[in-house]
Simulated scan of single mutants.
Amino acid sequence: MGVEQLLLVGLVMALGLVGVLVPGVPGRWLVWAAMLWWALHELSALAWTLLVAATALLLVDQVVVWLLPSRRIRGTGISPRVAACAGLGAVAGFIVLPVAGAIPGFIGGIYATERHRLGGHGPAMASTRAVMRGAGTSLLVELFACLLVVGAWLGAVIWG
């Protein structure tokens, strides 16, 4: 697989990560489709193993998201800015502290946005809890699974 195709697969995965944060966009399936595309062109044992693992992880993720309370984004006050900051925080946390850093990064992104908007610690904490109860948990679960798939793919491309 050439550099151009690898960049295109990476771009589709990045769009999938953004799609997780945008209601109505099938972010997890964009990530999976990019992984499938890569595996079909790579044709190695590592590629097929990652595709099977990604498929299993994203299917389990789908079930977990269904079992969580429904995503009520409109009623919780989640603005596109909050979702974007939460997503950026999760990605930054995932990079700084691989895998586990996505969770505090996601919550920290929500808190920082709400602290800036509301001006104090108490109201920001209350708003962060409300966002996480309303839709943040399902968003975090879906984003975390997609970050794991993208991270595994990136590791395979760099070190595999």
Rank of each mutant, 00 (worst) to 15 (best):
G87C: 05
L46A: 15
L143F: 05
I73Q: 07
P69F: 05
L118E: 14
A54E: 02
Y111G: 01
G108Q: 05
L15E: 10
G160I: 10
M35K: 01
P80E: 12
F94Q: 12
A90Q: 03
V18H: 06
C146D: 07
G89W: 01
R74A: 15
G87F: 01
L67G: 11
E142S: 00
M125E: 15
R115A: 14
A56G: 06
R115D: 00
V31F: 04
A56H: 07
W153D: 04
L67W: 11
P23L: 03
F144Q: 08
G136Y: 07
A83D: 02
G77Q: 00
A135D: 06
L118F: 13
L88W: 04
G24E: 06
R117P: 00
V20C: 02
I103Y: 03
L36Q: 12
G119P: 12
G93V: 06
A112P: 09
G93S: 08
F144L: 13
E142R: 04
L50G: 08
W159L: 15
L140H: 02
G10Y: 11
V150H: 00
V9Y: 13
L8G: 09
A126V: 06
W159T: 10
V63F: 10
F94T: 03
C85M: 15
G108S: 02
L21C: 06
E42V: 04
V20S: 00
T128R: 05
T55A: 01
A156Q: 09
V149A: 11
A145S: 15
P104M: 08
G119V: 14
T49F: 13
R81S: 13
R74W: 11
T76K: 00
R72H: 07
Q62Y: 10
H41F: 13
A145V: 12
T113K: 00
A83L: 05
I73Y: 05
P80K: 09
G93Y: 03
T49P: 04
A145D: 10
V63W: 15
G136P: 00
L40E: 14
E114A: 09
L51Y: 02
